[in-house]
Structure formats: structure tokens, C-alpha cells
């Protein structure tokens, strides 16, 4: 049977995948996608905990609200982040993180 632990494991594995992507890939857009994946993994854990914390016959809707806010913030973050990437591409003609070294000591 499917338990809360199954969902939490999927959430953890998805987060690990996103983390690996952020470390391994050099294309800044892919790194950004992996960040979204990690946010979604956290959402899955929240919804899972909410469903298994039944109070008065209903799941915990405070967690659902938090997920709703996370998704909204992620959408705003994507819009601003992609605008930054476009601005970066204009000056560098590249989206590889290796080429962005100006702030290295």
C-alpha cells in the first residue's frame, strides 16, 4: 500500500535530482529549471503532510495555502529570472555559467 513515506521519498528524490542538476549543468537556463524542480519537490512534501494530517475529516488547508503561495512566488521568480538571463545574454552572448566570471575574486 502507498504510505506517506512513499510520497516523501519521491519528494526527496526529486529534490536530489534538482540539486544534482544545479551542480552538474552549466547552462544557466537548465540550472533555473532544476531550481523549479526543487521547489516542486518541496510542494509535494507539503501536500503529502497536509493530506495525512486529517483534522475533522478534512486535510490541512494551511499547507495547501502555503503551496499556492509558493507556486505564485515561483511564477514571479521565473519571470524576473528569465529577464535577467536575457539581459545577461545580451551582454555576454552566452548562457554558460563558465563565462560569467566578473565577480570571481
Amino acid at each position: 500500500m502507498i504510505t506517506l513515506n512513499h510520497y516523501l521519498f519521491v519528494s526527496g528524490a526529486l529534490f536530489a535530482l534538482g540539486l544534482a542538476g544545479v551542480v552538474v549543468r552549466r547552462n544557466i537556463i537548465i540550472i533555473f529549471m532544476c531550481l523549479e524542480m526543487m521547489l516542486s519537490a518541496a510542494n509535494l512534501a507539503l501536500v503529502g503532510f497536509s493530506r495525512f494530517r486529517v483534522t475533522d475529516g478534512l486535510p490541512d488547508y494551511a499547507a495547501h495555502s502555503l503551496v499556492f503561495f509558493t507556486i505564485t512566488v515561483a511564477a514571479a521568480e521565473v519571470a524576473v529570472g528569465l529577464a535577467v538571463i536575457v539581459a545577461l545574454y545580451r551582454t555576454r552572448q552566452s548562457v554558460e555559467v563558465d563565462t560569467i566570471t566578473r565577480m570571481q575574486g
Binding site: 516542486s40 493530506r51 486535510p59 495547501h64 503551496v67 499556492f68 507556486i71
Partner: peptide, 15 residues
Amino acid sequence: SLDAYFIGIIQILVY
């Protein structure tokens, strides 16, 4: 599957 229908639909619509 976790009975979070609204969040599931929002996930598809927004993401």
C-alpha cells in the same frame, strides 16, 4: 492522488 485537486490543476496551469 493526495486529494489536492486545486493544487494539482494549478500546477498544470501555472507550471
